[in-house]
Computed example of a mutant assay.
Amino acid sequence: MDDDLKPRPKPPVHVVGQDLSTLSVHELKERVQVLKDEIARLEADMAAKQSSRSAAESVFRL
């Protein structure tokens, strides 16, 4: 029950152009992974939207 009261660690927040000199190699690796995961999420969403658009276009071409 006490675990529910502990603050959860926040995922690293990355700001484009941010000074990276204060971050450790481990922190940099974490941020790279977060950004890679976000890119994959964005690409999956784009693919889904392109698929939906293509399906809609094929219906309206008839």
Rank of each mutant, 00 (worst) to 15 (best):
M1D: 10
D2H: 05
D2V: 13
D2W: 06
D2C: 11
D3V: 13
D3M: 14
L5I: 09
L5E: 11
L5F: 13
P7N: 07
P7Y: 00
P7A: 11
R8V: 09
R8F: 11
P9S: 07
K10I: 01
P11G: 03
P11K: 10
P12S: 09
P12E: 05
V13T: 10
H14I: 07
H14V: 09
H14M: 04
V15Y: 05
V16R: 13
G17R: 08
Q18Y: 01
L20Q: 07
L20H: 05
S21L: 08
S21A: 13
T22G: 10
T22Y: 12
L23N: 01
L23Y: 15
L23E: 04
S24G: 04
S24R: 06
H26I: 06
H26P: 01
H26Y: 06
H26D: 13
E27W: 01
E27Y: 05
E27D: 09
L28G: 02
L28K: 15
K29P: 00
K29Y: 09
E30G: 00
E30D: 14
E30L: 15
E30N: 11
E30A: 14
E30S: 09
R31N: 08
R31S: 02
V32T: 08
V32M: 08
Q33D: 11
V34D: 04
L35R: 09
L35E: 11
L35P: 01
K36A: 14
K36D: 10
D37S: 12
D37Q: 09
D37K: 08
E38M: 07
I39D: 07
A40Q: 13
A40I: 04
A40E: 14
A40M: 07
A40D: 12
R41H: 10
R41Y: 09
R41W: 03
E43S: 06
A44R: 13
A44V: 01
M46V: 15
M46A: 12
A47L: 12
A47R: 10
Q50I: 08
Q50H: 05
S52D: 13
S52P: 00
R53I: 04
R53P: 00
R53C: 11
S54E: 15
A55W: 00
A56Y: 10
A56F: 06
A56I: 01
A56K: 12
A56E: 14
E57H: 06
S58I: 02
S58N: 10
S58V: 01
R61Q: 12
R61N: 10
L62G: 08
L62A: 12
L62Y: 11
